[in-house]
Every structure is written in C-alpha cells, then in structure tokens.
Design a protein around this nucleic acid. Structure first.
Lengths: 216, 216
DNA sequence: CCACCTTTTGACCACGCGGTCAAAAGGTTG
DNA sequence: CAACCTTTTGACCGCGTGGTCAAAAGGTGG
C-alpha cells in the first residue's frame, strides 16, 4: 500500500543546499529589512520567512548585522550598475532618457532594494559610509564629468550636473520608496505599468526640455 | 561665606514646567526618531537627550508609540501646510517657483521632520495610513485640480499633475532625506545655503521649462 | 501653614531579542 | 559500511527594552 520509496527529502548535494539556503535567507532578509528596517526586523522573522529555524540563519550568517551587510552589498552593486554606461560620446537625448528608464524600471522591479538603501542613507549610512565615500563618489565624479562634457559640446544648456543627478535619483527612486503614498493618492491597490510609464514620460520631458536638449 | 539665597531651582509655575518639558521631549524625540527610526530609538535615549529621567517621559506621553504619534502629528501638519496656497488664480510661473522654494526651505530648516515622514512611508505608513487616505488625499486632489486649471487656461503644457507633484516632492525632500549622500558626494561637512539655492534653481528651471511655462 | 494635587525619581519587572551550544541528522568520501 | 565533515535543531541564556509603581519632592490655593 505504501509507496516503495518513501517520500523522504530527495538527496541533494551540499553545495546546492548551501546555495539555496543562502539565497532564501537573503531574499527573506531583503523583504523584511525593507518592510521594518534594520532594528525593526528580528532574526526570527527572517528565519520564518525563509522557512528555516532561527539558528540555521545564524549558521550561514554570523550575525544579524552580517546578514544586513550582505544584503546591502548586493543592493549597492545594483545601484551603481545603472550609472555605468553614461558616456560623453552618447548624446544626452538618448543617454538621459535611457538612464531614467533604467532607474524607474529598477524601482519597479527591485523596490525593496531601493527602500533599504534609502533607509540606510536616511539614518546616517552607518553601514555603508565607506562605500559612499569610495566607489560611489568616484562613479559620481565621473558622471558629473560626462555631463560637463555634454554642456561643453553645446548638447545641453549649462546646469549643475550634481544637482541634476540628485534630482534624477530622487525622482526615480521615489517610485519605489514612496510607492505607498503614490498608491494611496492615486487610489490604486498597486502601481500599474502605465503609472511607471507616466513617470518616465514626465521626468524625461522635464529633464530634456529643462536642460534645453533638442529633441530633434 | 555662603550666599544667602542658596541657588536652588527657581520657583516655576506648573503650567510652564509642563509646557517646557513637553517641548523638550518632543524636540529630543524628533531628533532621535530621525536618526535611528522608531524601533531603533529607545525611550531612555530620548529621556537623556531631553535631560529628564526615563519615567518622566512616560509620565507625559503614555508610551513610546504615543510619543511617536505626537511627533508624527506635528510633522504631517507641517507637511500639508506647504501645499495650501497653490491657487488656480495665481500663475504657475510664480506659484510653482514659490512652492519649490518653500519645500526646499522646509528640507533645510526641518530635516528631521522630513526624515521621519520618509521613513514612515517607506515602512508602509503603519501609523499615518489614515491621515494619508483622508486629509492628505483631499489636499492632493485639490492641488491636482489647480494644475489642471492652469493647463486648461493654457498657462502650461499638458503634463500629468499627479506625477508632477510626485517629482516635486521627491526632488525637494531629498535635500533633507538624502542630505548625507549629497554631503559625501559634494565633499562637504554641511550643505551650504548655496547648495539649496542651486537645487531651487535647477528644479525651478526643469519644471518651468519642462512644463512650457513662459518665463516672460 | 496646611491639605491637596502634580511632578519627579529610583527601583523594579516581564518579555523579546540576538546569539550560543551540543547533540542529532544528513551528506561525502574512501 | 565506516569515519568524517556539514547542516539542522531544540533548548537555553544574558541583556536591553518598554513600562510600572510607590514614595518623595515640589507647586497650589485657601
């Protein structure tokens, strides 16, 4: 009557188990940290969400702080990636539009990452100060130079590159960080694709027209 | 040798004591909550910052949550105040510029308020959901209508009023919420007045030119 | 000055938290 | 199968936390 091979867990190689668990934990942690912040999140909550007992989470990540740092690391990489391919050779007409599209897509696809990053900055960046001052600053300075080059070529009017970037970041990330407020004020259960598209359209318009980039 | 009237605390009326203490506590709480969030803030830390023993804080505010709600209430009033005097009669040229100026000034003068508000939204607005859905939504809808009226009068080109407001909020508040990031990337110890002015100038330019508001 | 109310304060408590541990279970390798 | 390593798990712990309490101190009003 009983099946010959009892339905005990399939034999899985350790490497796979390890990878799967780490992934599950990181995923659960990202969601929890985004929802309730670092202090508001308990290791037990992460463990529950990941479907593992609490000590197992501490087995893979030595401490709650270690886990948080691991989460932050992935987020920062994602964050800096989008800035990469702004090039002085491209025309700001396409480059800026593409950048806005990428950043808003990121807010739509990885809202938790954006929220964690925002909360970290908000509270004084106690865990990623060094990365801000190092890699991110370098990236930022490079991008500022790209915009300066565009201005020098007459491709756009002279505006502060630094504040242009600040505004771009703020406006695009708000589609993740403040999505709740948007949802409430737009009377929606969830932001829809065309909400993000409207954001892209408006912001592109403001930036291109505002910086005097000829749309041809 | 000793002075005749020993330097004991001056006799102060209870009403004054009460008001002073409540103000001190609210002030200390605002700073603490902004710095470390709701969960990350301890009542003891607030009490220390206010120069009072912990049970005294709990005497004036029944609980940590009650204190947080009191802080939030003041912040929300401040937040909605700025939206008030957008009127369909005014021309967007001045109205939008003034609004941007007000909001960025607010970020400069009350950064803690902005941070607390941002963190609250970020984490799902567990304590001010009702106010968002009520008063703020009403205010928002009114303001959207004002912008629609401007468009109908031909004073600005047709853009999404909702997303215009979202962008305005995001860009202006980021001068409080992300001031740390700005400081690091601009290599400053503190944001200076001209940093805020540059933000005002850029954002005004983007919005007015971007929305086709004639600058005359 | 006295009875009364408000405020202040140190001591205290229950509880939830991050983290530990040792033993069991499961995978690996010859 | 046997010796060994990695992973899993329940039980446990010390500490910091929000909150309480009762007594003392201080202000108030007749």
């Amino acid at each position: 009557m009983a099946d010959k091979k009892t339905p005990k867990r399939a034999r899985r190689p350790l490497t796979e188990i390890r990878q799967d668990n780490i992934d599950q934990i990181l995923k659960a942690a990202e969601r929890q940290f985004a929802e309730t912040g670092f202090s508001g999140t308990t290791v037990a909550a992460i463990a529950d969400a990941a479907g593992l007992p609490k000590p197992n989470v501490l087995y893979y990540f030595k401490s709650k702080e270690g886990l948080y740092r691991a989460v932050l690391k992935r987020i920062l990489e994602l964050w800096m990636e989008a800035m990469h391919d702004l090039s002085a050779d491209d025309h700001p007409r396409e480059a800026l539009r593409d950048y806005i599209v990428r950043k808003i897509r990121q807010s739509r696809d990885y809202p938790d990452a954006s929220k964690i990053f925002a909360a970290e900055i908000l509270h004084g960046a106690p865990y990623i100060r060094a990365e801000l001052e190092g890699p991110l600053k370098v990236q930022f300075d490079d991008t500022v130079e790209v915009i300066r080059a565009w201005i020098a070529k007459g491709w756009m009017e002279p505006v502060s590159p630094e504040h242009l970037l600040f505004t771009l970041w703020a406006a695009t990330q708000s589609y993740a960080d403040f999505s709740l407020q948007m949802r409430v004020l737009l009377a929606r259960d969830e932001l829809r694709d065309d909400d993000f598209d409207n954001g892209i359209e408006l912001l592109t318009r403001l930036v291109l027209k505002g910086c005097g980039v000829k749309i041809v």
